[in-house]
Measured scan of single mutants.
Amino acid sequence: ITFYEDRAFQGRSYETTTDCPNLQPYFSRCNSIRVESGCWMLYERPNYQGQQYLLRRGEYPDYQQWMGLSDSIRSC
């Protein structure tokens, strides 16, 4: 899974293949995501807390595409 700070896969990015309890050191906001394979559970707060979103393989050019309430993703 790759997270992008800006919409349409622009700006600083961070890629991971494992669970991350705290994504804050890698980016300040998340406006687009690419899921290369599988399913990922994302959380608005660190340590798997807050609103959660299940994303399947695909491209999400805007946080509203995954029904996000904000551009805050802090763990996965």
Score class of each variant (00 low, 15 high):
Ser75Phe: 00
Asp62Pro: 02
Cys20Lys: 03
Arg7Cys: 11
Thr17Glu: 13
Gly38Tyr: 06
Glu15His: 14
Asn47Ala: 13
Ile73Leu: 12
Asn47Cys: 04
Thr2Met: 05
Ser70Met: 05
Val35Gln: 01
Ser37Trp: 06
Trp40Ser: 02
Arg34Asp: 02
Arg29His: 15
Asp6Ser: 07
Phe3Arg: 00
Trp66Ser: 15
Gln65Cys: 11
Leu69Gln: 14
Gln49Cys: 15
Arg56Thr: 14
Cys76Trp: 02
Leu42Arg: 00
Leu42Met: 13
Ser72Tyr: 11
Tyr43Gln: 01
Ser13Arg: 12
Ser32Tyr: 02
Pro61Gln: 08
Tyr63Arg: 08
Cys30Met: 04
Arg7Pro: 15
Asp6Gly: 10
Ser75Met: 01
Tyr48Ser: 03
Leu55Gln: 02
Pro61Glu: 06
Ser37Ile: 14
Leu42Tyr: 01
Met67Glu: 05
Ser28Lys: 15
Asp62His: 06
Asp19Arg: 09
Tyr63Met: 05
Asn22Trp: 04
Tyr14Thr: 04
Leu54Asn: 09
Ser72Met: 12
Gln64Ala: 07
Cys39Leu: 07
Asp62Val: 10
Leu23Cys: 15
Leu69Ser: 04
Thr16Phe: 14
Tyr4Ser: 01
Ile73Glu: 01
Cys30Trp: 02
Thr18Leu: 09
Pro25Asn: 13
Arg56Leu: 07
Gly11Cys: 03
Asp62Glu: 07
Gly68Lys: 12
Gln10Asp: 11
Arg34Ser: 05
Gly68Asn: 08
Cys20Glu: 09
Asn47Pro: 00
Thr17Trp: 06
Tyr53Asn: 07
Cys30Arg: 01
Gly58Glu: 03
Gly38Arg: 04
Trp66Asn: 14
Glu44Pro: 03
Glu59Leu: 07
Tyr63Asp: 07
Glu5Ser: 08
Thr2Asn: 11
Ser37Gly: 08
Leu54His: 07
Tyr4Ala: 00
Arg12Val: 09
Glu15Pro: 07
Arg29Gly: 09
Glu36Ser: 09
Thr2Phe: 15
Asn47His: 05
Tyr14Ile: 11
Phe27Arg: 03
Phe9Val: 01
Glu15Asp: 07
Glu36Trp: 11
Thr16Cys: 11
Thr18Gln: 03
Gln49Arg: 07
Glu5Asp: 10
Leu54Gln: 14
Leu54Phe: 06
Glu15Tyr: 08
Glu36Asp: 12
Glu44Gln: 13
Arg74Phe: 08
Tyr48Phe: 02
Gln51Asp: 08
Glu15Ile: 14
Tyr43Val: 00
Asn31Pro: 05
Tyr48Gly: 06
Thr16Gln: 12
Tyr26Trp: 06
Gly38Phe: 02
Gly58Thr: 06
Gln52Cys: 05
Asp71Gln: 05
Thr18Gly: 10
Gly68Trp: 11
Cys20Arg: 14
Arg45Val: 04
Asp6Thr: 13
Ser32Thr: 00
Phe27Met: 14
Trp66Thr: 12
Met41Asp: 05
Leu54Lys: 13
Pro25His: 03
Pro21Gly: 13
Cys76Gly: 15
Ser70His: 04
Tyr63Gly: 09
Ser13Tyr: 03
Tyr48Asp: 01
Gln52Met: 06
Thr17Tyr: 05
Gln65Asn: 12
Tyr48His: 13
Asp6Asn: 09
Glu59Trp: 03
Thr2Leu: 04
Arg74Glu: 10
Asp71Val: 11
Cys39Lys: 08
Ser72Thr: 05
Met67Tyr: 07
Gly68Arg: 14
Arg34Val: 09
Ala8Asn: 15
Ser72Lys: 13
Cys30Gly: 02
Gln24Tyr: 11
Tyr60Met: 02
Tyr63Asn: 06
Cys30Leu: 03
Trp40Leu: 03
Ser13Thr: 08
Gln51Phe: 11
Gly50Arg: 02
Glu59Val: 08
Thr16Asn: 05
Gly50Lys: 02
Cys76Asp: 01
Tyr26Ile: 15
Gln10Gly: 11
Pro61Gly: 09
Glu36Lys: 07
Ser32Met: 00
Ile33Leu: 14
Met41Gln: 13
Trp66Pro: 11
Thr18Val: 09
Ala8Met: 12
Tyr53Lys: 09
Gly38Pro: 06
Thr16Leu: 12
Ser75Glu: 01
Pro61Met: 11
Leu23Thr: 07
Asn47Val: 04
Arg45Trp: 09
Thr18Ser: 13
Ile33Met: 15
Leu55Cys: 04
Ala8Pro: 03
Gln65Lys: 04
Met67Phe: 06
Asn22Phe: 15
Gly11Phe: 00
Glu59Pro: 11
Arg29Glu: 10
Leu42Trp: 00
Arg57Thr: 15
Tyr53Asp: 02
Gln64Cys: 14
Gln52Glu: 12
Leu69Asp: 06
Gln49Ser: 13
Arg45Ser: 05
Gln64Lys: 08
Pro21Phe: 04
Ile33Ser: 01
Ser70Gln: 07
Leu23Trp: 01
Glu5Met: 14
Glu36Asn: 11
Ile73His: 01
Glu59Ile: 01
Phe27Pro: 00
Gln51Ser: 10
Gln24Pro: 03
Gln64Thr: 11
Phe27Gln: 08
Arg74Thr: 15
Tyr53Arg: 10
Gln24Lys: 08
Leu42Glu: 00
Gln10Trp: 04
Arg57Tyr: 03
Val35Asp: 01
Asp71Pro: 05
Phe9Ala: 05
Asp6Gln: 14
Ala8Glu: 15
Tyr48Gln: 02
Arg56Phe: 15
Glu44Asp: 12
Ser28Arg: 08
Asp6Phe: 04
Ile1Asn: 01
Ile33Gly: 00
Val35Arg: 00
Gln49Gly: 08
Pro25Gly: 12
Trp66Tyr: 14
Arg12Lys: 12
Arg7Met: 02
Gln24Asn: 08
Phe9His: 02
Arg45Thr: 11
Ile33Tyr: 00
Tyr43His: 13
Gly11Glu: 03
Thr17Met: 05
Arg74Tyr: 15
Glu5Val: 06
Leu54Thr: 03
Glu36Ala: 13
Thr16Asp: 03
Ser70Thr: 07
Ile33Glu: 01
Asp62Ala: 10
Cys30Thr: 04
Ser72Cys: 07
Asp6His: 15
Ser72Leu: 08
Gly58Ser: 09
Leu42Ser: 03
Asp71Ala: 11
Cys76Pro: 00
Leu42Asp: 01
Gln65Val: 09
Asp62Leu: 07
Ile73Arg: 01
Glu36Phe: 05
Asn47Gly: 14
Trp66Gly: 13
Arg57Ser: 09
Trp66Leu: 07
Gln51Cys: 04
Pro61His: 03
Glu59Thr: 04
Asp6Pro: 01
Ser72His: 04
Asn22Gln: 08
Arg57Val: 12
Asp6Glu: 09
Thr17Pro: 10
Gly68Met: 11
Gly11Pro: 01
Gly11Ser: 05
Asp71Cys: 10
Gln24Thr: 05
Asp71Phe: 05
Arg57Met: 14
Glu5Tyr: 05
Gln52Thr: 06
Tyr43Ala: 04
Asp71Lys: 14
Gln49Pro: 01
Met67Leu: 10
Cys20Met: 14
Met41His: 04
Arg34Trp: 08
Asp19Phe: 08
Asn47Met: 08
Ser13Met: 07
Gln49Asn: 08
Gln64Phe: 06
Cys30Pro: 07
Ser28Asn: 13
Met41Ser: 14
Ser75Arg: 02
Ser32His: 01
Gln24Ser: 11
Arg45Met: 11
Phe27Ser: 06
Asn22Arg: 12
Pro61Trp: 11
Gln65Leu: 06
Tyr14Gln: 03
Ser70Val: 14
Ala8Arg: 11
Gln51Lys: 04
Gln52Val: 07
Ser70Asn: 10
Ser70Arg: 07
Ser72Val: 10
Asn47Ser: 05
Gly50Asp: 02
Gly50Asn: 02
Cys76Thr: 11
Thr2Pro: 01
Arg7Ile: 05
Arg29Ser: 13
Tyr63Cys: 08
Gly11Ile: 00
Thr2Gln: 06
Glu36Pro: 12
Arg34Glu: 02
